[in-house]
């Protein structure tokens, strides 16, 4: 499917928001919801960055690290993949202080979601590295490259292309999971919506706007990932169609 369809969807969603914003029943809620959306975006971006770092690190350690580190990485992946993100948020926010470690709610949100998605991401990275043809490794060996040189110069650039679509999915998952942070006192988009709804009972305009805003954010993300994929695979695919 082309990027065109996605861009058209994005334009349509923005147009609908634009039209609704001319109605007072809707425009009333827009500033508050936008404020919440900013926090949602901040958490999503920082969480994604942490997820990438953790995903790549855990994958490399599990594939090539020494035994104790490998074991540690496996424990990390299984714990954060095997328990719910909500429980992880609660544990870091409500349980950790009982042991004398109190973290700021925003930091907890970024860390919990980043570690959670990073655990899934490590499997994506691992799979992509293992999917690079064996002949590529052998060519590197024949050129006497070190393991680090092989990974950095030959294997990861090729694995990167294969990683982009699944990472896109994970980023969208993360974006949607940010609504959980409303449960640890943060005023994100979902929290703002609930709060306004409780105060005004204008359920239709509020949740229609919220729905459209999440859609816009995920469409922007998807389009960005598609562009990245297109760019990254350009070198690999060049001339293949010919």
């Amino acid at each position: 499917m082309g990027i065109g369809t996605l861009v058209a969807m994005l334009a349509a969603a923005l147009a609908v928001i634009g039209v609704l914003a001319t109605q007072q029943a809707y425009s009333l809620f827009l500033p508050g919801l936008l404020q919440g959306a900013v926090l949602t975006i901040e958490i999503a971006i920082l969480g994604s960055l942490l997820a990438i770092v953790m995903g790549v690190l855990a994958a490399l350690v599990r594939l090539y690290g020494p035994a104790p580190l490998r074991w540690l990485a496996t424990v990390y992946v299984e714990i954060f993949r095997g328990t719910s993100a909500l429980v992880q948020l609660f544990w870091l926010f409500f349980v950790l202080p009982q042991f004398g470690v109190t973290l700021d709610a925003f930091l907890v949100a970024v860390v919990a979601l980043g570690l959670n998605v990073g655990a899934y991401g490590s499997e994506v990275v691992r799979g992509a590295i293992l999917s690079v043809a064996r002949g590529q490794w052998e060519a590197c060996t024949a050129l006497n490259m070190s393991r680090a040189q092989m990974l950095r110069r030959v294997i990861l650039p090729q694995a990167f292309v294969a990683m982009i679509p699944p990472w896109g999915n994970l980023f969208i998952e993360l974006l949607k999971s940010t609504s959980l942070v409303s449960l640890i006192t943060l005023s994100d988009l979902a929290f703002k919506a609930q709060q306004m709804n409780q105060n005004t009972f204008k359920t239709i305009p509020i949740f229609t706007l919220v729905l459209l805003m999440y859609l816009v954010m995920s469409l922007v993300l998807t389009i960005g990932m598609r562009l990245l994929e297109r760019r990254a695979s350009a070198g690999l695919a060049r001339g293949k169609a010919a």
């Binding site: 043809a133 002949g135 590529q136 052998e138 060519a139 024949a142 050129l143 006497n144 030959v154 650039p157 090729q158 070198g235 690999l236």
Partner: peptide
Amino acid sequence: AKIGMVFQSFNLFPH
């Protein structure tokens, strides 16, 4: 370092 090899399937770096 003294040895080089050419493979049946070329194995050039595609990128």
